[in-house]
């Protein structure tokens, strides 16, 4: 079992100034599975997600204690380069954020940064990534069009394509479908199912239906603590904690 663990958080604490945003989080995330983080807003699930690729480093007042291991390496270790870490751990944001450049340039941005200069290699990466994000058939004829000209759902898939273009191992998704209509959401969810063959996916969602549809494992966060984790099926049918049950059944949050 342990060789299947991709990410392991141990006694992870995070404080913003006086605010204790995460308390003693212990969580194992399995390889090539979809793990959903659920909980009421402000419970720390997004904050936890951002700890996994050290995006919280950008906030001056954030202080982090504890360990996060990816493939057995503590990513908060002294000799870890957060820039290289983020290449390995990609992220998709709540609000789709394509660069104000062409579709092609959006995808090529990451590979270029990492030193790919050859035009044909770039072309291949762009096609592969767009196919991977199930967007190729829709945009293959106008790759020069601005990424901002796409619809909301397409923009989000463009961001996914952009993330997988740098060949990461983990994809972090922060409520990727919260701003989309049901049809676009369904497409994204379908895509997530396909992506888990190649990537380990951690998704934050406030929709319990979404969590039950896409995830293998679910972790419930409440007030900065990780209350319960287990197979999605079990969490949604027979949670062991009272708080989880209250949340699942819609008594709060």
């Amino acid at each position: 079992m342990t060789e299947n663990i991709k990410i392991r958080a141990g006694k992870l604490n995070l404080q913003y100034g006086q605010k204790h945003a995460l308390r003693d989080i212990d969580l194992d995330i399995e390889k090539n599975r979809v793990t959903a983080l659920i909980g009421p807003s402000g419970c720390g699930k997004s904050t936890f997600l951002r700890c996994l690729n050290r995006m919280n480093d950008l906030i001056d007042s954030a202080r982090i204690q504890g360990r996060v291991e990816i493939d057995g390496t503590d990513i908060y270790g002294k000799d870890v380069d957060p820039v290289l870490l983020r290449r390995k751990v990609g992220m998709i944001f709540q609000k789709s954020n394509p660069f104000p450049k062409s579709i092609y340039e959006n995808i090529a941005y990451g590979p270029r940064i990492h030193g790919v200069k050859d035009k044909r290699t770039l072309d291949q990466i762009v096609e592969k990534s767009l196919r991977g994000a199930a967007l190729w058939d829709e945009v293959k004829d106008d790759l020069a069009k601005s990424g901002l000209a796409l619809s909301g759902g397409q923009q989000q898939r463009l961001c996914i394509a952009r993330a997988i273009a740098v060949d990461p191992e983990v994809l972090l998704m922060d409520e990727p479908a919260s701003a989309l209509d049901p049809i676009a959401t369904a497409k994204i969810e379908e895509l997530i199912w396909q992506l888990k063959e190649n990537y380990t996916i951690v998704i934050v969602t406030h929709s319990m239906h979404q969590a039950s549809r896409v995830s293998d494992t679910t972790a419930f966060f409440y007030m900065g603590e990780m209350v319960e984790t287990g197979p999605t099926q079990k969490i949604f049918t027979s949670p062991s904690q009272k708080r989880t049950e209250d949340y699942i059944t819609g008594r709060f949050g």
Binding site: L84, F93, P98, H114
Partner: peptide, 13 residues
């Protein structure tokens, strides 16, 4: 927008 900066950083820039 801050999102653009984060998008770039998340790609390993």
């Amino acid at each position: 927008p801050r999102e653009l900066r984060e998008g770039s950083l998340a790609l390993g820039a």
